[in-house]
Amino acid sequence: MLTILKRSRANGSAAYRAVVRVKRKGKIVYSESRTFDCEKLAKLWGRKRELELQTPEGIQKLKVAKVTIEQLIDRYIKEVEPITASAIDAARAVLNQLGLIGKSSRRD
């Protein structure tokens, strides 16, 4: 289902947000949005995404590509930002309190 929302930016110009949602058995199983300067572009993008997601493999591709927050943080720590062990432990403690990672998660 495509919804176009018009909103005002801080500078007063208009922006159009295209929101595409896929429902299965009355529940939203996928939602995606993108903002455009022109309403016509928002509609075109939304219609295209709807068609892509209607294919049998459309949503399956997205489900396979899901990555957890824990995996993203681990990758960031290893590849981008060399930080101290105490900072890593502190970040993991916060994520654990939020329930985003399990207690057994340890750094490599």
Rank of each mutant, 00 (worst) to 15 (best):
P82Y: 06
A90Q: 08
S8G: 13
P56C: 06
I4F: 04
P56V: 07
S104G: 00
R92V: 04
V19N: 03
A91Q: 08
M1S: 11
V80M: 08
L51E: 15
L95M: 14
L72N: 06
E32T: 10
G26D: 02
T84H: 00
L72D: 11
C38P: 07
D89K: 11
K63I: 07
D74G: 10
L95T: 09
L44N: 13
L41P: 02
Q71A: 15
V29R: 03
E52M: 01
L95W: 03
T55C: 04
K63A: 05
S8V: 15
L44Q: 15
K6R: 15
I28K: 10
G102R: 08
A85K: 10
G58K: 05
D108H: 05
V67L: 07
A18G: 10
K40I: 11
K6M: 11
I28T: 15
K48F: 12
L2C: 05
S13K: 15
D89H: 09
S86K: 13
E70M: 09
G99K: 04
K43Q: 10
R107K: 13
Y16T: 04
A18E: 07
D74I: 09
D108I: 13
I59G: 07
R9T: 15
E50C: 09
I83T: 05
V22M: 09
S31G: 12
A87F: 04
A91G: 01
R106I: 04
S86D: 04
